[in-house]
């Protein structure tokens, strides 16, 4: 009995953590290259979610095609938002970039409200997603295992790209020292576009599993994943790709522990506890659990 509870806990942490890891990885890719905390990242997920909704409701396309197009939508919004909104600020201050990403986020939210509907829409989910699987005596929907598997595959592919391809090595170099990388012939625009494309791709994958879990899409749905991403990134380390993955799992762990241990009267304050932990982390350990090699400007 006890072993079963433990195993259920482990599966919950791993499946939630996988999703969170992908979310925070999408944020860190952009942050690493252009030091931008991208507030519009949540809306990339929303865009993908709506594409899944439209294709699922209004077409008879097979699921793999729907998913692929949903992910491509995330890639497209990542790529174009950078091109239109962020590129003109490259040479400006970071604060201007930050404020812009905030404005882009608001614009996209209002566009969804205006163009689609302020109310949430039910997203069709393939039946096998919700198929209950019995594993070591624990019953869990298949999607929980699928997200773990998807994350393993995605992370492996990303690791291979970052470690062995010229593009990946150049991106790692550019995130440590952007100017020097450019002096070595690494094109700035390509690096930043690549970061936003990977970020959008991860947002697209997240959208599939996020909307499957909530069963719906709505204009403001990007808010929660964005906040989760922030927490995970802060815990793991803003300058480290492996750190952000670790942060996702640690966040899932803390959140599950809080859910189990907090008295029910305090459960509604869970997010406040989470963010208080984030603030404590930022104050005490601004570099996160794993620090990258970027030298953060910090005065103490």
């Amino acid at each position: 009995m006890n072993a079963e509870i433990l195993f259920e806990f482990v599966i919950n942490v791993l499946s939630m953590g996988s999703l969170y890891a992908l979310i925070s990885l999408g944020l860190v890719f952009v942050f690493g290259i252009c030091q931008l905390v991208n507030y519009a990242y949540g809306e990339y997920i929303t865009v993908s979610g709506y594409v899944l909704y439209f294709l699922g409701v209004f077409t008879n396309l097979p699921w793999p095609v729907v998913f692929l197009l949903g992910i491509l939508a995330g890639v497209a919004i990542g790529f174009f938002s950078e091109l239109v909104a962020f590129r003109p600020f490259r040479e400006r201050s970071l604060d201007a970039l930050l404020v812009t990403s905030f404005a882009v986020s608001i614009i996209l939210q209002r566009l969804f409200q205006l163009g689609i509907s302020p109310r949430s829409k039910a997203v069709p989910v393939p039946a096998f997603f919700n198929l209950n699987i019995q594993l070591f005596g624990v019953i869990t929907p298949l999607r929980n295992l699928l997200i773990i598997g998807t994350t393993i595959v995605l992370l492996t592919v990303l690791v291979l790209i970052m470690k062995y391809t010229t593009l990946g090595i150049a991106m790692r170099g550019a995130s440590e020292n952007f100017v020097t990388a450019r002096l070595m012939g690494v094109p700035a625009n390509l690096m930043i576009s690549a970061a936003f494309i990977i970020s959008g791709l991860l947002a697209g994958v997240v959208a599939i599993f996020w909307s499957a879990r909530t069963g719906s899409v709505e204009p403001m749905m990007g808010g929660t994943p964005l906040l989760i991403g922030f927490i995970a990134v802060v815990i793991g380390g803003m300058h480290s790709l492996p750190g952000s993955v670790l942060g996702g799992y640690v966040y899932a762990f803390i959140s599950n522990v809080l859910s189990l241990t907090l008295p029910s009267s305090l459960l509604s304050f869970r997010d406040a506890f989470m963010f208080a932990i984030v603030i404590a982390f930022l104050v005490l350990k601004p570099e996160g659990l794993l620090r990258g090699n970027y030298q953060e400007e910090r005065v103490g």
């Binding site: 927490i231 802060v234 208080a276 400007e297």
Partner: peptide, 20 residues
């Protein structure tokens, strides 16, 4: 003490704590 990106996320987190 915190500035730049770390400062921005901290302030943002504080807003969320107050809101919750």
């Amino acid at each position: 003490r915190l500035s730049d990106a770390v400062g921005a996320i901290t302030q943002f987190a504080l807003l969320i704590v107050i809101n919750v």
